[in-house]
Design a protein around this nucleic acid. Sequence first.
DNA 1: ATGCATGAGTA
DNA 2: ACTCATGCATA
Length: 227
Amino acid sequence: MHGLGHLSHPAAAAAMNMPSGLPHPGLVAAAAHHGAAAAAAAAAAGQVAAASAAAAVVGAAGLASICDSDTDPRELEAFAERFKQRRIKLGVTQADVGSALANLKIPGVGSLSQSTICRFESLTLSHNNMIALKPILQAWLEEAEGAQREKMNKPELFNGGEKKRKRTSIAAPEKRSLEAYFAVQPRPSSEKIAAIAEKLDLKKNVVRVWFCNQRQKQKRMKFSATY
DNA sequence: ATGCATGAGTA
DNA sequence: ACTCATGCATA
């Protein structure tokens, strides 16, 4: 219901889909989308992209490593932990941080959900996503600690007769089967998906999305070796 | 904290 | 039809 402008940026757009499989990309790719939150990621991605571009210029052809501390997994991990620690010290919840980001008047930066803050702290986001969010959360942390006496508010009360989204739950047996299929073929064809769906008596779309989410999981910082 | 889902951007 | 960032709903 609330509208924060959308942004379009060639830099981020040009590096959207990563060439999975080849020598790991030290590039920054991030996408913008979703309402207000979209703008946030967009801005962050833009900044990082610019920085990477500058550093990339050095490596002519053969080299492709970015020794930037901001992209170093260890640095991110350390920051995430420090962040959580200090956040708790401030007596602020993950949800609070998320909404407070909007009050931080960074151009194009809106609010984020409790889910995203949680995932940032637990490193269960993609490496690129972590890099994009770090500067934003760091800015919030500094401001929050600086004005530790201020008050925070988030009077967002709006309601109507909106239909609640239902979360379909896949039973354990079916889930095990899916995992088995995934181990053999992480990217089944549409036909294969249809077959699996029928066999497990699940909607084809549910199966398709399950595979998509499973692939994303593998790319999360915490479990991916492809930093 | 995490499962299933959406939507923009890309190919 | 996929990837990727992100979120609602829920355990």
